[in-house]
Design a protein around this nucleic acid. Structure first.
Lengths: 107, 107
DNA sequence: TAGAAATATAGTTAGCTAACTATACATCCG
DNA sequence: CGGATGTATAGTTAGCTAACTATATTTCTA
């Protein structure tokens, strides 16, 4: 028999969103070019934004930014892409859309 | 000059939703008659559900249930109505709709 | 290959949260 | 009025989270 399923869309997504800093990151990532300087080894839009840019703009140390980004990734709201020594993070627009759509019906 | 506004829909709403127990409450309150026994001094639908019913069904002590319900109320997701010695809680459907609509556009 | 650069992980600490019990407060009713 | 009932508040504690520094890991480059 199946384990009892969660009530609703994993509270994990809400936990990821329950942080001003993470909401700020998500907002910046909506239009990376407006918010971050050009990148050498990856396209801001296609590949995503590197951790250091986000850490700097957020005003936190790099490990803290990594932690926030990993939380967003676990929740499925962003994806990460390793390119050489860089890790680029970008929004997962499809997952975000699916989430808001499900909210509209089930919340 | 204005104080810096929050990034987005108060993270407080997300914080309220970032709890399986509170999500469970919200779900039960969608159809109170299906989930709670009849009430003497207030209509389950029109007035809301009393704290004790929710505490019992949730499997927590009454003060814990009160705390969850107050969190939901602060987030604007439910409203409370004091009737005599009872406090009834019900969903604020309009506020919830406004929230999901805003999410769709701004998240 | 050695060092520099970007990120991840480990370890620590302060602060918040959820739970409980005890009790105060408010209201009903006999 | 006085006890019972429903809810709220106070106070406590265990566990989680966000932040930091230090360091490990990975990769690039001179």
């Amino acid at each position: 028999m199946a384990a009892s399923a969660p009530v609703f869309p994993a509270a994990e997504v809400f936990r990821a969103l329950a942080s001003p800093k993470r909401l700020q990151i998500l907002e910046w990532l909506r239009s990376p070019v407006e918010h971050f300087p050009p990148q050498r080894d990856g396209d801001l839009v296609d590949d995503g934004v590197c951790v250091i840019y986000i850490a700097d703009k957020l005003g936190v140390a790099q490990p803290t930014a990594t932690s926030h980004l990993q939380a967003l990734a676990r929740a499925g709201l962003v994806t990460s892409k390793r390119v050489g020594q860089w890790t680029f993070y970008k929004r997962d627009e499809e997952a975000i859309r699916a989430f808001t759509r499900r909210l509209r019906d089930e919340l």
